[in-house]
Amino acid sequence: MARFLVRRILGSAATLVGVLVVVFLLLSAAPGDPARLATGGAPGRRAASSEALEAFRAVHGLDRPLPARLASWLGAAARLDLGRSFRDGRPVTRRIAETLPATLTVNGLALLLAAGLAVPLGVWGARRPGGAADRVSGLLLDALFSLPSFALGLLLLLLFSVQLRWTPVFADPSLGLRGIALPALTLALVALAPIARVTRRAVGEALSSPPALSGRARGETPREQTFRALRRAAPAFAGLSAALVPQLVAGSVLVERVFGLPGTGQLLADSVFSRDLPTVLGLTLVSGLAVVVSTLAADAAAAVADPRIVDGEGT
């Protein structure tokens, strides 16, 4: 078990470093001089003096060769120092920390909502495979899989803000639940479909298996069997929640734009737009870390629930 975990952690760390190197090189290879861009060298505006450019490069270490910059950035990142933004010169960690609460609140709320809606929906469909409930929930899930999150968010805005006037047209965390209900609902609907599908499959298979049939003959109720099936599906749910993290990160970028929510996703979109290299790198690290850590946690949970996974790894 310990060896399994160590190997997994080392593998994930290598993946993460690979991700960062790719993004670093990608952004450094982009056309245009970041110093010139950051000091206001946009077309039509007066270019900064060459002394100012030199000073900017020295402050941000842009005058050193690429491999040295990459190495020192990785070293600093390991000490939780992500450098300073090209935009306003403030530490990247602080800029990220400022936006993280709004994003995490919305995402947490969304996950709660999604799980609360999706598990009953999946169980409902699994009770009678091919029945009316199964077909209705199947149609609903197909629809949710095919509608992009931002289009869904815009349609919800039309309904709840413009027609019914229940919520503000722009998300506002200071209004409490009413201010963030719509972005949370949008993200929840994005996460709902995969959770419901896994529930449907796990419960459906368990209820129609030979042991379940013989259990039914001995007087077990479908209710008991459903709960047991849900418990036994724990590794599948763990893997699923890991798979949901990248979706939620991408969803946040779009949904925050739709609702004008000042969160981490907006920060990423703005930083890509303004070529704020340190901030983009920092956010890449954070989202990559979120994905890798949740995958690791899911692997560990699956290995605890089913020791055969550890043995299989040995080959």
């Binding site: 991700v19 952004l27 290879a29």
Partner: peptide, 15 residues
């Protein structure tokens, strides 16, 4: 390991 949108958006700054 990446949200596809993040990768594509970061790459969009390239060209």
């Amino acid at each position: 390991a990446f949200p596809a949108l993040v990768l594509v958006a970061a790459g969009a700054a390239l060209a």
